[in-house]
Simulated assay, not measured.
Amino acid sequence: MFNTPLPTVNELPSTRKLVRSTVIAMLVAAGLLVTVVMPSEYAIDPTGVGRALGLTQMGELKIILAQEALADAAAPQASTPAPAPAPAPAPQVAQVQLVAKPAPQSEATSAPALKTNQITVTLKPGEGKEIKLEVLKGKTVSYAWTALGGPVNYETHGEPYNAKKGYFHSYGKGKQVKDNQGEFTAIFDGTHGWFWRNRSNSDVTISLKATGDYLSVKQ
């Protein structure tokens, strides 16, 4: 039926060649098993080649998906609660509408009372003195003072709590002044007030009136 000639004995592979081919095939199969099949199917990668080729990650993903499927199958299904019986209709009762009268509104809280102090100090020739008020940031103090006996040099200034030595903020100053009035708003928490120095040859008395939202007076 077929005209193909049969191979001769010389053309057939020898036993040695068959054994060698078999061994090579087994080694190739083992290599594929270790580097491809085991990493991609079971995430087992003893050589590290599977992770380099991305096959180990594929096997890890398969294992995670299988575990999630088993967990979903094992989870008990929540039973649907039976519907609650409908409540019986309540007897009709005549409703009486009550109108509540609004409570009288309390008067607005009055602003805190301002303090007022009248203070007098006497300066000898060449002497300097100061009066300070303890004032918090944003609070305002109005004042007026007069010098009896001669003009004085003055400065209105403030120092914050725990200020560095020599640091102060000046609100205003003058030389050879007999009186001054105005107001200041504290720019920080601390002591704020006045310093006077008598440069004349006679005593000078300073009379100060201060009104405002301050905590205390310091001399």
Rank of each mutant, 00 (worst) to 15 (best):
L6T: 10
Q219K: 05
A88M: 08
V99I: 13
P87Q: 01
M58W: 13
T22E: 05
T122K: 11
R197Y: 00
P76T: 08
K209I: 13
T80F: 09
G212N: 06
E107H: 02
G172I: 02
Y42T: 08
I63R: 12
L133V: 06
A25Q: 05
A113H: 00
L32R: 01
V37H: 04
T116H: 08
Y171D: 05
M58T: 13
A100R: 09
E159K: 12
S142E: 15
K124Q: 15
K218F: 00
V204L: 09
P81E: 05
P87R: 00
H157W: 02
N3Y: 05
R199V: 14
T191W: 06
P5M: 09
V49P: 03
V99K: 06
A147Y: 11
E68C: 07
A113K: 14
A25E: 01
Q105A: 15
T56E: 14
K164R: 09
I24K: 06
Q95R: 05
L55I: 08
N3A: 12
F2H: 07
F184W: 12
S207I: 08
A69F: 04
S202H: 13
E159W: 08
L123G: 02
Y171L: 03
G54T: 06
A30Y: 11
N201M: 02
T80L: 12
A25N: 05
T35C: 13
D72R: 15
D45N: 02
P151D: 10
S202E: 14
A84G: 04
A103F: 10
K175L: 05
V19Y: 05
L148P: 04
K175G: 02
N162A: 13
S110G: 01
N162I: 03
Y154V: 06
G190E: 01
S40E: 13
P39K: 09
T211Y: 07
Q219F: 04
D179T: 09
E159F: 04
S110K: 12
A100K: 07
P39L: 11
A43K: 04
V217L: 12
I44Y: 10
I63K: 14
I63D: 04
A113L: 08
Q118S: 15
A111P: 07
L53F: 10
K115I: 06
Y161I: 14
A43G: 14
A84T: 11
A25C: 10
T191A: 14
K164H: 04
L70T: 13
P125H: 13
D213A: 12
D189I: 04
V135I: 15
I24W: 11
E11Q: 15
G59A: 10
G166E: 03
S207K: 15
T116F: 11
A73V: 06
M26I: 06
G182W: 07
L148D: 13
P102I: 06
Y154R: 12
A111Y: 03
F195S: 02
A86K: 10
K17C: 00
P102E: 12
S200N: 15
P151Y: 07
G166D: 09
I64T: 14
Q181S: 13
S14L: 09
A111R: 12
T120G: 00
A66N: 13
T80R: 05
I64A: 15
K139L: 04
D45K: 01
Y42S: 08
A94R: 06
G158I: 02
N180M: 08
T22K: 03
K175H: 01
D213Q: 12
A73P: 00
L136S: 13
L136M: 09
A108T: 11
